[in-house]
Design a protein around this nucleic acid. Sequence first.
DNA 1: AAAAAAC
Length: 515
Amino acid sequence: MTKFSDLNLDPKVLKAIVDAGYESPTPIQEGAIPPALEGRDVLGIAQTGTGKTASFTLPMITLLAKGRARARMPRSLVLCPTRELAAQVAENFDTYTKYHKLTKALLIGGVSFKEQDKLIDKGVDVLIATPGRLLDHVERGKLLLTGVQVMVVDEADRMLDMGFIPDIERIFGLTPFTRQTLFFSATMAPEIERITNTFLSNPARVEVARQATSSENIEQVVMMFKGSRKDREASEKRKALRMLIDNEAEKCTNAIIFCNRKMDVDTVAKSLKKHGYDAAPIHGDLDQSQRTKTLDAFRDGSLRFLIASDVAARGLDVPAVSHVFNYDVPSHAEDYVHRIGRTGRAGRDGKAMMICVPRDEKNFDAIEKLIQKTITRIDNPMQTSDTLDEAPAAEQGEKPKRTRTRTPRKSAAPKVETAQVEAAPIEAAQAEPPKPHDAKSDAPKAVPHTREPKAQTNTHTNAQPKPQAQKEARGRSGNNNNRSRGGGGGDNKVVGMGDHMPGFIAMSFDERRTG
DNA sequence: AAAAAAC
């Protein structure tokens, strides 16, 4: 078994890795680090949770350990789609640069320019940024990207979804063509393929099975739900959510609850709070300090329920999330995979529970088709008997006077009347034997049929010619053989990196930004 | 149809 010490990393990086408690690299790390250290471009096809972040931070730190930053000319750049992901990457750098004097700046929106400007002026080794704020700095003439030796694009497919690709292309154009590029995407959409063909040069292609797709360690269930009356549907759906939560009782240590709309995030969070649940919302309309505070609280365990829009669907690495609830069926099947991937991380078990209303059934079908798996149906207890106690007059205010529903966390067994109705189907669902399926069915459309041809033939498709004196194919090409150890092993052991509790939880946003 | 990201 490969150890980090076999990977030619800087001794001080190795020491930091040991301090963090890691010994062996994950497949993506094992595949990406060697070519990255050789100065090659890397095309990594992997989701977070696979140890992807360290697969670029570790070689970057090793490479940057030689040399010094110059004012306004950062030596490396990491681009992330959301502010939270950028902060997470920054934290990862902190962990592994503890024995180095490398400096970094986190350039994200929603906070003042002042501190960011100060850091840039002093000169930083690593810039971690969201595209909008980065370009803003460039346009203000405060930042030059001509000194960037290593550029990382993280979560490229999400950048695509969010319409960032033109920005990314522009940023590529601001960096020297001699730079080394490390490019990560969970999938290879045609547009992503085009970008990599244009901006990467003979990349080492490293691919790991998507961990979260429908892996054995995430139990997935769905409750088909229909309101008794149209005007009651919303409040009944919130009640259904509470029943799902209550039924899990103490098995649900914490959870992310996803809604499709920001408005529903707010409504559900408010409703849960009113019913005595420890819940807080997170979405893009909340101000950044609030977002940071909420996420930090969820990470350190002081918040049990995070109600989230898709801002939290991808990449967020909170190691021990026991449950993901899809309050709404995501309208893009891909998003389902990302959402449930917030649980069952680092080899742990996780449970994903979804509520599906009739109008979402089409989207639901698309999800089952994507993951090539039947999601276990559980019954809606309210439909079978129990709707009567939800008096129509009381429902819209969700008055807290009904104490029975307000103290769910204390009682392991939920309400008496509903207990029998609910327990049966849900227990049955849990007893369902895990279907045997191989690695391939875990990654039904992760990588279509385009595995190697493009990476090899890309030299003639370069729209933007790029001399590659120092970047010839050395060593093995087509480095895509890293599935062997994927899949998590099933013994529920915690593996890989990214499983530590980030220290920046303890810091204020200001400290983090300047630190 | 919605979310995210620059001011």
